[in-house]
Design a protein around this nucleic acid. Structure first.
Lengths: 324, 324
DNA sequence: TTGTAGGCGTTATCAA
DNA sequence: TTGATAACGCCTACAA
């Protein structure tokens, strides 16, 4: 080690960075000064080898290009960075196999993983969480630490909103079959529709892509629905385009609700949607993960933190049209 | 090491993973099988310690939530992953100071950095590239390896396209004053407009945000322009909304061109734009970076790879309207 | 084809 | 308050 040559011993240099309070202040200063001159930066992998802590966590998402994820990733990265932990990002391309491989590879290069919207079977997730610290976001697996964005609340609010505007025939444009969020949303909608006595048809499953939403428009129109709720804003935006093409005006003829609030007011008309606090979820995930990594205890092994997402009324929903 | 207990020696296990061809096939199989059973995964940091290669690179971007970056990040991650290199993602929050700190921290945890749209002064960038392998994307610093997306070509094509449709009065909705891309684009447009003898007014500078584009619509209409080129798709999409509000139809009354092709066909009408091969840029950056890391030589020290971005005709451009 | 020995940079422990 | 030493898990000679 270069710094040692320019002054003291290796352990003193180590302490100057890791436990400065154990050294005389002027020793710390002297070492750091020389280290800076030499362009020395502590070598993390070596440190990892002796401490067993890598100082790195990973965030794994299905698709980085999906605008739902960047805010989560950013929040994770910020929260981790604040604690001196760096963040590895991985993208599973929506492929469960790739996700599984990734998790395995990450096991020895990270202290833990924040797994967002996992597409893996419950059993697999549970097994992973046993061998490597893991916190789920947007996925509910009993016995695994998780942060849940509860969109069911918002879905109920959305359906109440539509029913209040006189819509009696609704449609849900569903997301991926393997998505936990989708089944939650679908369940909440179905139950609420029944309670209110309005009809609800379901289109899908769909990959959350613009084209899919666009293509689903014709099918949804055929059901006679005047109120449409989409799995997410991406599908909703596609639906908006599809409806426009079919000569259907929003919200005059059909009211449309998205989910996740990732497009803000960037659509015409601005989309009524369900706002999920994704940044907060990312932060909470890091807290839970780091607490788990540090704390030896298995105390909170099954902790589930739930954050509610609420309906936001913008301009894509309005009174139901008079019966055709 | 556990696997050793269940069969042979440590170095044999090491070879089973790093140099399988040096071992008898059945030995490799046996070792791997037992390793799998025990849930063994090679410990990368330890490997890094002895080889001097971390097997990790970083991508640094100003803002992960800006839709221009995810495709680049994804491409980097994919290209690196294919070569067994993992990718660390960092976000500078658009702050040069944070960017500088990050680069320093990354020096000992990565083999090199892909730095996208850096906001750092040239001298700083140049200095960093001397102490740690670095490849720039979307930033032109003499003497530093870099991948440039040349949108000037596309800008010329766009203006030719509009002029060919009969537009004589054009407007450019400019991006941030400090942006290298903006000055490149503006220069190309100004020169070409002069060559073709069409007028070009400039609005801005603007931050590349939806609201800014929307607000700029009125100003642009006042110039009498029938052909509008925006710094990027985000501004163009805002402009689209602003024009719609002003009762101006696209492309009937005004033709609109974006840049970067980050919205694909997700606007109505689908935006004519300039497609920057950002995925290709990410891939090229990784190639250049890894070649630099491996190759001892300083041969390509100043390599600049330029990739042309071309005009894509979709539905937001059409014949110029008859003179009012 | 396989085993043995030494070293990579850091930290924890123990001694001074 | 500081130094010496062993150890972390892996890799690369070199030896067998």
């Amino acid at each position: 080690m270069v710094a040692a040559a320019a002054g003291v011993s290796a352990s003193t240099v180590s302490r100057a960075y890791s436990h400065p309070h154990l050294l005389r202040p002027d020793t710390v200063d002297r070492v750091r000064e020389i280290a800076d001159e030499l362009g020395y930066v502590p070598h993390y992998p070596a440190r990892a080898l002796s401490t067993g802590r890598l100082g790195t966590i990973a965030v794994v998402v299905p698709d980085i290009a999906n605008p739902f994820f960047p805010p989560v990733i950013r929040a994770v990265e910020a929260a981790a960075g604040r604690l001196g932990v760096s963040t590895l990002l991985a993208d599973t391309d929506e492929e469960p196999q790739k996700e599984a491989d990734l998790l395995l590879a990450l096991q020895r290069r990270t202290d833990g993983v924040v797994l967002v919207s996992s597409r893996l079977p419950e059993a697999t997730v549970r097994a992973r969480s046993l061998v490597h610290p893991l916190v789920l976001v947007n996925r509910d697996v009993e016995g695994v630490r998780r942060i849940l964005i509860d969109t069911a609340v918002g879905m109920r609010e959305a359906i109440d909103h539509l029913a209040g505007l006189g819509h009696r025939r609704l449609a849900y444009v569903a997301g991926p079959a393997s998505s936990w969020s989708d089944s939650e949303r679908r369940r909440a909608l179905t139950a609420r529709a029944r309670e209110l006595g309005v009809s609800l048809s379901v289109s899908g499953p769909h990959r959350p892509e613009h084209e899919e939403g666009r293509a689903a428009a014709a099918q949804v129109l055929r059901t006679g629905a005047t109120g449409v709720i989409a799995f997410d804003d991406v599908l909703a935006q596609g639906m908006l385009a599809g409806l426009l093409e079919a000569g259907v005006a929003v919200p005059r003829d059909v009211s449309l609700v998205g989910c996740d609030d990732i497009l803000a007011v960037r659509t015409v008309p601005p989309l009524s949607t369900i706002h999920g606090p994704s940044a907060e979820a990312g932060r909470a995930a890091v807290d839970l993960l780091l607490a788990h990594i540090d704390g030896a205890g298995e105390d909170d092994a099954a902790a589930a933190v739930s954050i509610s997402a609420h309906f936001v009324h913008r301009a894509s929903t309005g009174r139901a049209p008079r019966r055709a």
